[in-house]
Nucleic acid binder design. Structure first.
Length: 561
RNA sequence: UGGCCCAUGGUGUAAUGGUAACACUCCGGUUUUUGGUACCGUCAUUCAAGGUUCGAGUCCUUGUGGGCCAACCA
């Protein structure tokens, strides 16, 4: 990681400035603080790479802290998935923390606040409190309970803790300023009553701290130096600092919150709430559905950690609203897979090709290069015979000069094999071409060095020998939404933009070398794209996911017509 | 009609008062036994108006546009 020539993003600059102003390098500490209420998505990858990247850059510890203050939404399943995803992306945390580890400390501090007259118990309804809250343009009014005695507050809060009150009946509020221009400073709630079991503390508590009261104090407990979050928390900073003021002791590290813009990806949604909706309402088959922008979905789709890190690095960190084109993500995965995958042949829309002058029953094993990008990748043998499958798109009875593929009377090379010439074709009663008959030039075998083998023909087709091919299931994915920014329409729900054709499942035929492919293995199906073996595969059936297609300039030429 | 934040090619990000650049996309071309890859090239950028300065994308003012803020969510 030689970053010397690379410019710093504004977050890195903040750290650099602190260092320049005397901040101790050894005092640097960061954290990645997910709430375990859903799976991590590509947007989180930015935050992960930012925080763990800072840790790597400064050799500083980075904690993985679960922000688990709401037992109503959080589950162990999510904790496990998050840990797996962070590790898979290639990062190691210093210590695994939970905000729930700090419930006792938070409670003790809350008692102090009450004793200092800085917090009070309110037993009004949420509606009443909302009314008193005012609006962004009008100040709020004080709660009638705002000036309860310290003794009464202590007693009430104790009763809350002991479970004597029902949910929604009592809260502990910080006494700050009901007329602040910042709504969050209008006596924010610190604790609410929740008679729910927590995934870690079980039923030890029935009062749970709110985000604002928890987050900054957790940073402080862990002595995190820089606490980076997304822009929607910018207004929370004032409160974050106010809460810190209440507990801060000189000499300790005082965490600093700064905000950056979350990354939006085109043609999808990057919000745990909306992704959960897609899962729960069955628009996708789970959080790791390959169409999901989740880390687990991308992993199953065939994305590599390297490509995601490279993507994140390319899109950078800033403060303005953004909508990153998914084509950039596709570029980074193609870039990595081009260099790392072996080339194989598979046919997705088969058209039977019969080589009429090739001996019946004969099989010949042709040598095929595994990767033109890697001279050490070696080669393999591919069976060739009289009856093959080629792609339906690769044959036309008649076509103009721009069509480099097979047409009647025309020649193409079969990749790694021979030059063939289409002689005739047969059709079914509906006029669909069902078979092509051709002849081959026995002297044109690839790599044989003969004059005929060196002849240049414009088109090269991939193919499989019908008798040797493995029948597989292939899942083709398209963008999940038809709109580039489905959740930013004020008058329309994002679900209205679901792409009904985001998944199509077809039967494909691949060369026998893939017989022993393992789950997760990635390949380039030549001329088609990158594919990986899905976990749904079993001994009887290989299932492939198309990670991404190859760039297709022929398709572009077609589109123009 | 309050507060906070933001504004650089189609997209994203740099330029830290001194020649506006990089990547992706788009378009065109060269090479090619993948219409892939690689390589070359074209088009295209500082929201507006004032001000400070020898010099402003950068600093100041005002406007305009966009985002966020009134969950016992995070």
């Amino acid at each position: 990681m030689n970053e010397t020539s690379k410019s710093l993003n504004f977050i890195e600059q903040i750290v650099e400035e602190d260092l320049a102003n005397g901040y101790g390098r050894e005092d640097l500490r960061f954290r990645f603080p997910p709430e375990p209420n859903g799976y991590l998505h590509i947007g989180h990858a930015s935050s992960i790479c930012l925080n763990f990247g800072l840790g790597l850059r400064y050799n500083a510890p980075v904690n993985l802290r679960f922000d688990d203050t709401n037992p109503a939404k959080e589950e162990q399943e999510y904790v496990d998935a998050i840990k797996k995803d962070v590790e898979w992306l290639g990062f190691s945390w210093d210590t695994e923390r939970y905000a729930s580890d700090y419930f006792q400390q938070l409670y003790d501090w809350a008692i102090i606040l009450i004793k200092e007259g800085k917090a009070y118990v309110d037993d009004q309804s949420s509606e009443e409190m909302a009314d008193q809250k005012g609006t962004p343009t009008e100040p709020g009014t004080n709660s009638p309970n705002r000036n309860r005695s310290i003794e009464e507050n202590l007693s009430l809060f104790d009763q809350m803790k002991r479970g004597e009150f029902g949910e929604g009946t009592h809260v502990l509020r910080a006494k700050i300023d009901m007329s602040s221009s910042n709504m969050l400073m209008r006596d924010p709630i610190m604790y609410r009553v929740l008679h729910k079991a927590h995934h870690r503390t079980n039923t030890d508590w029935c009062i749970y701290p709110m985000y604002d009261w928890t987050h900054g104090e957790s940073d402080y407990i862990e002595q995190v130096s820089h606490s980076f979050c997304t822009l929607e928390f910018a207004m929370h900073r004032e409160l974050y600092n106010w809460f810190l003021d209440q507990v801060y002791e000189p000499g300790k590290i005082r965490p600093k919150q700064r905000e950056f813009a979350r990354r939006n990806l085109s043609h999808t949604v990057v919000s745990k709430r909306k992704l959960l909706q897609l899962v729960e309402q069955g628009f996708v088959n789970g959080w790791d559905d390959p169409r999901m922008p989740t880390i687990s979905g991308l992993r199953r789709r065939g994305y590599t950690p390297e490509s995601i890190r490279n993507f994140v690095d390319t899109i950078g960190i800033a403060k303005r609203d953004n909508l990153i084109d998914v084509s950039l993500l596709e570029f980074t995965i193609r870039e990595h897979l081009n260099k790392t995958t072996h080339r194989v042949m598979g046919v997705l829309n088969p058209l039977k090709l019969v080589i009429t002058n090739y001996p019946e029953g004969q099989t010949e094993w042709l040598e095929a290069e595994n990767s033109p990008e890697d001279e050490h990748a070696g080669s393999r043998q591919v069976p060739f015979s009289r009856e093959l499958y080629i792609e339906q798109d690769d044959f036309k009875e008649e076509a103009n000069k721009k069509f480099f593929r097979l047409k009647l009377g025309g020649e193409v090379r079969l990749k790694n094999g021979y030059i063939i010439k289409a002689e005739s074709c047969t059709k079914d009663t509906d006029g669909n071409i069902v078979e092509v008959q051709c002849t081959y030039d026995p002297k044109s075998k690839s790599g044989s060095g003969t004059e005929e083998s060196l002849r240049r023909v414009k088109g090269t087709l991939h193919w499989v020998s019908i008798a040797h091919a493995i029948k597989t299931e292939v899942r083709l994915y398209d963008r999940l939404f038809t709109d580039e920014s489905p959740d930013t329409h004020k008058d329309k729900d994002f679900l209205e933009f679901i792409n009904p054709d985001s998944l199509s499942i077809i039967t494909g035929y691949v060369e026998p070398a893939l017989k022993n492919a393992a789950i997760g293995d990635r390949f380039q199906f030549q001329r088609l794209g990158y594919f990986c073996v899905d976990p749904d595969s079993n001994d009887n059936l290989l299932v492939f996911n198309r990670t991404v297609g190859l760039r297709d300039s022929w398709a572009k030429i077609q589109d123009k017509k």
